[in-house]
């Protein structure tokens, strides 16, 4: 009897531990009170509405969106040809490249951020936006390479030869036959990259300047000064945005096959 209860109970406790804090935040964002507190005092949409009126949030949301979309696109533009070359040709330094490409996952983000600040932003005068863009692109690159490589591995190489024999150029075969077949992987890589970039804190921590901050960093700053439930409201909104994207991806693309 105890054994039969043990497994479901453990599962329940784990889920509670994982999802519990999130539920608290969601509940807190509908609070009618003045401070971030749980249980929430009353029920209202006032903090959710307020989030949209805060100028700095609107600005940093724009920055974050730009970094997530632009960085992911840049990572894909670099990552797709890299994955393709590594999967189809025997390159002399393939292992080195593979290792270099996965470095950004291994090196702590905060070091990447600090290094960029110390060696690029300060001495060279690289703009903070550019530094952020470079950092986010590098950070997403490993995911792009990994996910695209996985879908390339599932794609037979001989279909490209078939296309060439039927009259297509090598490059044409890539666009006509390879890209359409790894579309799912590319979209998955895009979503994974987007979410990774959007939720990124450590790399972005040192890289903020006048008017340029990513949303998570802006939220940290806001919380240091103001302790109202608008942070909870924003967090919930972002969480639901992420969940929505991943859910849609799974629903329409079979996202989990690629990750």
């Amino acid at each position: 009897m105890i054994r039969r209860l043990f497994t479901p109970l453990t599962l329940f406790l784990m889920m509670l531990f994982l999802i519990g804090p999130f539920l608290i935040i969601v509940a807190a964002s509908f609070s009618a009170g003045e401070t971030l507190a749980f249980p929430p005092q009353g029920f209202s949409f006032r903090w959710i509405i307020k989030v949209f009126t805060i100028e700095s949030f609107r600005q940093s949301f724009g920055v974050s969106m730009f970094l997530a979309i632009g960085g992911t696109l840049a990572a894909l533009i670099l990552g797709i040809p890299a994955s393709y070359a590594m999967s189809r040709y025997r390159l002399p330094f393939a292992e080195t490249v593979r290792f270099l490409v996965s470095m950004p996952i291994i090196v702590p983000g905060i070091i990447v951020g600090l290094a960029l600040l110390r060696y690029f932003v300060i001495p060279v005068g690289m703009s903070v936006t550019l530094a952020l863009f470079v950092a986010h692109t590098a950070l997403i690159l490993p995911y792009a390479v990994r996910v695209v490589s996985a879908s390339l591995a599932n794609l037979r190489a001989d279909i490209e030869e078939a296309a060439v024999i039927l009259g297509s150029s090598r490059l044409g075969a890539f666009f006509r036959v390879v890209l359409p077949n790894i579309r799912g992987g590319i979209l998955s890589a895009f979503i994974l990259g987007f979410v990774t970039s959007f939720n990124q804190v450590p790399v972005s921590l040192f890289l903020s300047g006048p008017g340029v901050r990513t949303l998570p960093i802006d939220m940290l700053g806001y919380m240091e000064n103001v302790f109202d439930p608008s942070i909870a409201a924003l967090s919930s909104l972002l969480a639901f945005l992420s969940i929505g994207i991943v859910f849609a991806a799974e629903r329409f693309l079979g996202f989990s096959r690629y990750v």
């Binding site: 279909i159 078939a162 024999i165």
Partner: peptide, 17 residues
């Protein structure tokens, strides 16, 4: 791509999409 030779691959190599 300019040879005008047909090749039927052992794996057939059909375009999956």
């Amino acid at each position: 791509n300019k040879r005008e030779i047909g090749l039927v691959f052992q794996s057939y190599a059909l375009f999956p999409h």
